[in-house]
């Protein structure tokens, strides 16, 4: 999925625990929970119990600046490269690996538009399981998706499929905008519905692309 990098700036009010100050395991000095290293003694810290946004030094919200996300993530990972810990204690080696794993998890979640939406709903205390096997019966969404999938199956040539892909991608972008607005306004119920819609739209794009590949291969 190509991600849109231009997203409207909206503030949002998801409650995220304030970055607590803890004490460094090594020198006992004060250190921010999100810090990778102690500013006093320089020792690597274990991953604190903080949310993904705080971990990556980003503000909470559905609108994530994907360039900033990449910069933060790769910057942190460079500082945690195993080569830098070759001569360190086994405790520091273990902490650096745990930090790297926690950063991976945060990055994978925030980078993905669908996982990010599900994560924000979880933070807001309204978790939605997009992978549950529960059946839905939203007639408007399902009828629309049925028609679009039919159009893909019946497309006569690559040009027609290309137009359907472009249309589906525009809908994905529109749905992300709607998600952003819903989160910004604290309308979690609407956001949960939009997340399901986004899941279907991403499936639509995938379906159209694979049809195009099969068509082009003939």
């Amino acid at each position: 999925m190509r991600l849109r990098r231009i997203v409207p700036r909206l503030t949002m009010t998801v409650s995220v625990a304030a970055p607590a100050v803890i004490s460094c395991w090594s020198c006992k000095g004060p250190v921010a929970a999100r810090a990778l290293f102690c500013s006093v003694c320089g020792a690597v810290q274990g991953p604190g119990d903080i949310d993904h946004f705080t971990r990556l030094g980003l503000g909470p919200g559905y609108d994530v600046d994907l360039d900033a996300l990449d910069r933060q993530y790769f910057g942190f990972q460079r500082r945690l490269h195993p080569d830098r810990f070759a001569a360190k204690s086994s405790r520091e080696k273990a902490f650096s690996q745990q930090q790297a794993t926690a950063l991976n998890d945060a990055y994978e979640t925030l980078k993905d538009p669908l996982k990010r939406a599900a994560y924000l709903l979880r933070l807001a205390g309204k978790p939605v399981d997009l992978n549950s096997s529960a059946t839905i019966s939203d007639p408007v969404l399902l009828m629309e998706q049925m028609e679009k999938r039919e159009a893909i199956a019946e497309a006569a040539d690559v040009a027609e499929i290309g137009a359907l892909i472009a249309e589906a991608e525009a809908e994905v972008a529109g749905c992300q905008k709607d998600l952003s607005a819903a989160f910004a306004a604290n309308r979690q119920g609407e956001a949960a519905q939009l997340a399901v819609r986004l899941k279907y739209l991403l499936k639509l794009v995938e379906d159209a692309r694979s049809r195009k590949v099969r068509m082009a291969g003939r």
Binding site: I136, S137, Q145, L204
Partner: peptide, 13 residues
């Protein structure tokens, strides 16, 4: 009957 499974993005009529 029109139902869907969001987990796989399936639609069934």
């Amino acid at each position: 009957g029109l139902v869907g499974a969001p987990a796989c993005g399936d639609v069934m009529k």
